[in-house]
């Protein structure tokens, strides 16, 4: 038994040392990356000082042409949307931005499934992009809210770089990466992939009723609190599918309660079922994104939301 305990303890110690060294090295490497997804993430968390910030999911990332917004409104804009993420990541990123400066305007693209609908209890996927920033002000508590064991897991340097280390090594040493985008905006080039759409389908279906997620709702309210004093605007960008607008009720209520503008392009006949503007059922292609950004700017001007 004694031999067993000594050997197991030695093994744990050895792993702990290697883990700390690995975590340290990967931390330094990822900080220095300025291209690809990590570079974009570093930009958002450490560098940008733009007036207008776009938050949201892939629908934000691929729909809001930040350069066009900057040029049209005369205020700098950065697209901080992230594929597969919603309010939890957006809240974390907002905290990091507020540590450095306060943006004048926040455009938040609402994606109900990521922002307040119940999709099961696994929120870990939303933490992926925040792992490297765990030590920053307020970020650690997001991890503890999602899973209290993250407090212990995040002590491991290797775990902090779980799934991202290979990509970061390739980017750092070989310089191979995906496009960082134009001011964070990553257009989806190409035409509609008709195989990816189903005729007659609705985006969101209320036949079984909607289940709201109290955890995401809590973060939505936290986000509202933190963006107080800034010009917050909720936007729903176009979809190829018709959308059941009942799904937007919670956000409509929030907007009414807090006097926040909601600009809703879902079910806009210009876009619905219009293959020219889409890459798939939920994402605009580059042409559609430019058209939508143009329409959004017009709508923002019409609603006079930039008269601070």
């Amino acid at each position: 038994m004694k031999k067993f305990i000594i050997r197991v303890s030695t093994f744990i110690l050895l792993v702990a040392i290697l883990d700390a060294l690995f975590g340290f090295a990967m931390g330094r490497i990822s900080e220095r990356i300025d291209i690809g997804g990590t570079g974009r993430d570093n930009n958002i968390c450490d560098k940008i000082t733009d007036d207008i910030i776009v938050f949201g999911s892939s629908r934000a990332e691929h729909h809001y042409n930040a350069q066009m917004i900057s040029d049209s409104l005369g205020q700098s804009c950065y697209n901080a949307g992230e594929d597969g993420c919603g309010i939890i990541l957006a809240y974390g990123r907002l905290l990091m931005l507020l540590d450095r400066y306060t943006p004048k305007t926040i455009l938040y693209e609402i994606t109900p499934s990521f922002d307040y609908l119940h999709e099961g209890k696994d929120y870990h996927k939303y933490l992926y992009k925040l792992k490297r920033h765990y030590d920053r002000n307020g970020i650690d508590s997001i991890f503890w809210d999602v899973d209290r064991t993250e407090r212990y897991k995040m002590q491991s340097g290797t775990y902090q770089h779980n799934s991202s280390f290979l990509q970061n090594l390739i980017v750092y040493f070989l310089g191979i990466s995906t496009d960082i985008g134009i001011k964070g905006y990553r257009p989806l080039n190409g035409e509609m992939d008709t195989m990816k759409i189903k005729s007659g389908k609705l985006a969101y279906d209320s036949s079984n009723g909607y289940r709201y997620d109290p955890f995401k709702m809590q973060y939505l309210h936290k986000f509202l609190q933190k963006s107080e004093g800034q010009n917050l605007i909720f936007v729903v960008s176009p979809m190829w599918y018709e959308m059941d607008t009942l799904v937007l009720e919670p956000i409509k209520e929030i907007c009414k309660e807090h006097d926040i503008p909601l600009i809703d392009f879902s079910n806009d006949p210009k876009y619905v079922h219009n293959n020219r503007y889409f890459k798939d059922g939920t994402h605009l292609n580059a042409i559609g994104a430019d058209e939508f950004t143009h329409d959004l700017i017009k709508e923002l001007r019409k609603q006079k939301v930039f008269q601070y």
Binding site: F22, H124, D147
Partner: peptide, 18 residues
Amino acid sequence: WTTYVCVLFMILVAGVFG
């Protein structure tokens, strides 16, 4: 021991947790 450490490291860096 090298094998044990490598396998454990692969779990930590390439494993899907959650």
